Simulated assay, not measured.
Amino acid sequence: MSFVREAGRAVRSTFVLWVLTALIYPFVMIAIGQIAFPFQANGSLINNAQGQPIGSALIGQPFTSDRYFNSRPSTTNYSTADPKADSLGVLKTGVSGASNLAPNNPALLDRIKGDIPRLQKAGVKPTADLVYTSGSSLDPHITPEGARAQIDRVAKARGLQPNQIEALITQNTENRFLGIFGEPGVNVLKLNLALDALKPARAS
């Protein structure tokens, strides 16, 4: 009887813990997230003027047009490649991850040697974040310096005044977390969305 009683107690304890950890706790966390942090809990999605989701504030995406601020280079092209037609091998490291190429690797050096003249030709002063990929290859931010380096190109393509875009960058610069952690950054998607809403300054 003692064995049966102990076995029954173990089964009941397992069931109670399962209900607590596999059912109650997850649903409580979901409820807290939806009530207290709905934006973050739903993927930090950013909507356009029509209310349609166009991306996440946490995941970078490629912008190649001169009318927009370009994102950091990505070894996975921000995971937009088609796995069935990946001729360039951008997904060979997975949907997220660095290239793991050493600083003296010829493949890395060749890419950088190609990117720097391309940026200079577009009138963009190469900064580290516009040349080197991030550890995740999904970084949604660039540095304020990387954004300012693109002002002339974007202003020319959109017919805007450089000081308009400079002000926009300042408005969209995220400072250090709690004032001490990390470095200031500019979310490229948010900046480009604000850029689309910007109207040319009236001629004086």
Score class of each variant (00 low, 15 high):
21 T>C: 12
21 T>Q: 09
21 T>I: 12
23 L>N: 11
23 L>G: 14
23 L>V: 15
25 Y>E: 06
25 Y>F: 14
27 F>Y: 08
27 F>P: 01
28 V>G: 02
29 M>D: 01
32 I>S: 05
33 G>F: 01
33 G>C: 01
37 F>W: 10
38 P>E: 07
43 G>N: 12
43 G>K: 12
44 S>Q: 05
45 L>E: 13
46 I>Y: 07
47 N>S: 12
50 Q>W: 08
51 G>R: 08
51 G>K: 09
53 P>M: 14
53 P>V: 13
53 P>I: 14
53 P>Y: 12
54 I>G: 02
54 I>T: 04
54 I>E: 08
55 G>Q: 04
58 L>P: 07
61 Q>D: 08
62 P>H: 01
63 F>V: 04
63 F>T: 02
65 S>G: 06
66 D>R: 03
66 D>L: 04
69 F>A: 06
69 F>P: 00
70 N>C: 03
71 S>T: 06
71 S>L: 01
73 P>W: 01
73 P>S: 08
74 S>G: 09
75 T>D: 15
76 T>M: 02
77 N>P: 05
77 N>R: 12
78 Y>Q: 07
79 S>I: 07
80 T>H: 03
81 A>P: 01
82 D>S: 14
83 P>D: 00
83 P>N: 00
83 P>S: 00
83 P>W: 00
83 P>A: 00
84 K>L: 14
88 L>E: 15
89 G>C: 13
90 V>R: 10
90 V>G: 02
91 L>W: 01
92 K>M: 13
93 T>L: 12
93 T>V: 13
96 S>A: 14
96 S>Y: 03
97 G>M: 10
97 G>F: 04
97 G>T: 10
98 A>T: 15
99 S>I: 02
99 S>C: 07
100 N>W: 05
101 L>T: 00
101 L>A: 03
101 L>F: 03
103 P>F: 09
104 N>Y: 07
106 P>R: 11
111 R>T: 15
113 K>F: 04
114 G>C: 10
115 D>M: 14
117 P>D: 06
118 R>Q: 10
